[in-house]
Simulated scan of single mutants.
Amino acid sequence: MGKHIFALMLLLTAGVTGADETNDSDLSPWAIDTITPIHDSVTRWVDNTARNIDGFFGTIDSDSVDNESYLRLSTDFDWAESEEFDIDPGIRFKLDVPTTEERLRLIIESDPEESRGTLEEQGAERLRNDTDGLGDTVAGLSRLGSRDKREGWHTRVGAGVKLHWPVNPYLRYSAERLWQLGDSPWQLSSYNRASWFEHDGYSARSRWDVGRPLDSTRHLRFVSQLQWQEDYDQLEFSQSTQLNIVLGKRSAIRYSAVIVGGSSSNPRVNDYYLQTDYRRDIHRQYLYWDIVPALHFPREADFKPRWAISLRLEMLFRAQLTRE
Results as ranks from 00 to 15, higher is better:
312 R>T: 12
178 L>C: 00
241 T>L: 06
188 L>M: 04
192 N>H: 01
3 K>Y: 08
54 D>W: 12
55 G>L: 12
238 S>D: 02
291 I>P: 01
157 V>W: 03
281 D>G: 09
219 H>G: 02
126 R>E: 06
155 T>W: 07
65 V>P: 02
201 G>A: 10
67 N>R: 09
52 N>G: 13
116 R>W: 04
282 I>S: 05
313 L>C: 07
301 A>T: 12
56 F>I: 15
126 R>S: 10
209 D>C: 02
324 E>W: 03
290 D>M: 06
217 T>Y: 13
91 I>C: 04
93 F>C: 05
102 E>T: 04
284 R>N: 08
73 L>F: 11
217 T>N: 15
308 A>E: 13
87 I>V: 15
16 V>S: 02
324 E>A: 12
279 R>W: 02
23 N>S: 11
81 E>D: 14
321 L>I: 11
149 K>E: 04
266 N>I: 15
121 E>D: 15
19 A>E: 09
272 Y>G: 03
200 D>W: 04
104 L>K: 06
93 F>W: 05
194 A>V: 10
196 W>K: 14
12 L>Q: 01
12 L>A: 13
170 Y>A: 07
197 F>S: 07
92 R>D: 10
46 V>A: 03
308 A>K: 13
268 R>A: 15
27 L>S: 06
192 N>D: 02
164 H>I: 01
154 H>P: 00
239 Q>E: 10
18 G>L: 04
257 A>T: 06
304 K>W: 08
26 D>A: 11
197 F>L: 14
78 D>K: 14
226 L>H: 06
313 L>I: 05
95 L>H: 01
199 H>I: 01
7 A>Y: 00
131 T>I: 10
196 W>R: 14
225 Q>M: 03
18 G>V: 02
64 S>H: 09
173 Y>L: 06
118 T>P: 12
11 L>H: 04
201 G>P: 09
23 N>Y: 01
175 A>Q: 02
154 H>Y: 02
170 Y>R: 04
275 Q>L: 12
288 Y>R: 09
229 Q>G: 08
221 R>K: 05
205 R>W: 01
279 R>V: 03
226 L>C: 01
5 I>W: 10
253 I>G: 00
231 D>S: 14
134 L>M: 12
68 E>F: 06
33 D>I: 03
179 W>E: 05
262 G>R: 06
93 F>Y: 10
238 S>V: 00
252 A>H: 07
107 I>S: 02
106 L>A: 09
108 I>W: 02
92 R>K: 11
241 T>P: 00
323 R>Y: 14
211 G>R: 01
256 S>L: 02
201 G>L: 13
142 S>W: 08
50 A>M: 07
314 E>K: 12
156 R>K: 15
305 P>C: 07
144 L>W: 03
90 G>E: 11
192 N>I: 00
73 L>Q: 13
263 S>F: 06
40 D>F: 08
4 H>N: 15
151 E>H: 07
287 L>F: 05
290 D>K: 08
11 L>E: 05
87 I>A: 14
187 Q>H: 05
312 R>Y: 07
294 A>Y: 00
120 E>P: 03
98 P>H: 06
48 N>L: 12
18 G>K: 04
122 Q>S: 15
66 D>H: 08
179 W>Q: 03
61 D>K: 13
73 L>M: 13
